[in-house]
Amino acid sequence: MSGNGSNPMRPFIGRLAGIRDVATGIRLFQVEMAETEGQAAAAGYRPGQFAFLSAFGAGEAPFGLASGRGPYLEFAVSALGHVTHTLHGLEVGDPVGVRGPLGNWFPMEEIKGRNVVILGGGIGGAPLRPVIHTILDNRDDYGHLTILWAARSPDLLVFTDEFDEWRAAPDTEFHVTVDRGDENWSGNVGLITQLLEQVAPQIDNTVTITCGPPIMIHFAFLTQQKLGFTPQQMLTTLEARMHCGIGKCGRCNMGEKFVCIDGPVFWQYEIKEFLEGFL
């Protein structure tokens, strides 16, 4: 439950405890909750959930939470609109508002013992970061971890400062690709779907988790199916323009389902049942 007691539309007040750039134009905001109720809500956070972040006076917008291992709720924010531009102008110590965490989460318990393939595209990698941390911090609970990380260009790769840790983790392979390289780029160039085909992860006892722009999710699912994954093995988290996050405002429906309350995390077999596509 979000919001203050009786009103789920009232944000909890928080304070920006840290701000850093995690890619060109993408800034990570660490939020410390100022109110007791907000702290309790934040403590219930589970990877995959989202929250609204308010820049008071400009408005609020929903983000898949990118929280790390610290005590903060973390939001990766790309400056695309009025709210996000305003957020980019804030400084450490500035007050913000948080409604959330909201929505469902990745079934981290349910997939224990299985291999995990993670596909993150651009800022879509943000909500996958806590998934990676969960697996690395409970390494024995999960099987082989394959991380495929992609962006349109090298400067848009998020959380590059954590790549070394991910690479070095036991029973973990980390691959990265960009759609277009630059003069300093010596890694893979190509789409994440091509990388997935090259890596060709084991199918048996494996779950994939994909997050990125809708077009990437669409093609990543197609490639996964081509490789032999079933709809019961493929997870994703959908983005949508939402205004309430609690199933009221009508913005985020895909047919009779609402991304905010039925998701944002869905299995592919659930998405297949939607009357209306997400693309």
């Binding site: 539309m9 308010s54 008071f56 006076g57 400009a58 408005g59 609020e60 205004h243 309430c244 009221k248 405002c249 009508g250 913005r251």
Partner: peptide, 10 residues
Amino acid sequence: CRCFDVVDRV
């Protein structure tokens, strides 16, 4: 019909 938007204004 009940769709709504939520915005801030200074």
